Amino acid sequence: MAPQPLLVDTQAAQLATGVPAGTLRVWLHRGRLTRHGHDRQGRALVDLNEVRQFAHPAAA
């Protein structure tokens, strides 16, 4: 059973993983990450667990 998504904006994902927000936006554009809507400020929401998988594949 997959864990529940932990939705955060790209800035929070950057702080949690060290992956620059610009890189996260490129991954979203290329379809590598799934966009889970937008927050009230219009920032893309991503699953922090998914970002961690791509940022650190050996740990996943």
Rank of each mutant, 00 (worst) to 15 (best):
R40F: 13
G37P: 13
R35N: 11
A13M: 01
T23M: 05
A44C: 08
R52W: 05
A21K: 00
R40I: 14
T23G: 06
W27P: 04
R43Y: 10
G42P: 08
T17E: 03
G37H: 04
R25K: 11
G18M: 03
R30H: 13
G37M: 11
H38K: 13
H38L: 12
A21P: 03
L15Y: 07
G37Q: 11
E50R: 13
A59T: 13
A55Y: 07
T10P: 08
D47V: 05
L24W: 00
G31K: 11
A60Y: 09
A21T: 02
A44V: 07
P20H: 10
L48N: 06
A59Y: 01
P57E: 15
G31I: 13
G37R: 02
V8A: 04
H56I: 05
D47F: 04
D39F: 04
V8H: 01
R30G: 10
F54M: 11
D47P: 06
D47M: 08
A16P: 04
R35L: 06
G37W: 04
L48W: 06
L15Q: 05
Q4W: 13
L6V: 15
V26Y: 05
G42L: 03
Q53K: 14
A2V: 14
H29G: 03
Q11K: 02
T34H: 15
R40Q: 14
A44P: 01
L48I: 11
R35C: 07
L15A: 11
Q14N: 01
Q4Y: 11
F54S: 03
F54N: 09
H36A: 15
H56D: 10
G42K: 03
R40A: 14
H56E: 10
P20A: 09
Q53I: 14
A60Q: 10
N49H: 15
A59C: 10
L33I: 06
Q14V: 01
W27H: 09
E50A: 14
Q11M: 03
Q14K: 04
R43C: 08
W27S: 02
V8G: 01
A58F: 12
P57R: 14
A44S: 09
A13Y: 04
P20N: 09
R35W: 02
P3V: 14
R43F: 04
D9S: 06
H29I: 01
Q11T: 00
D39L: 00
D9W: 05
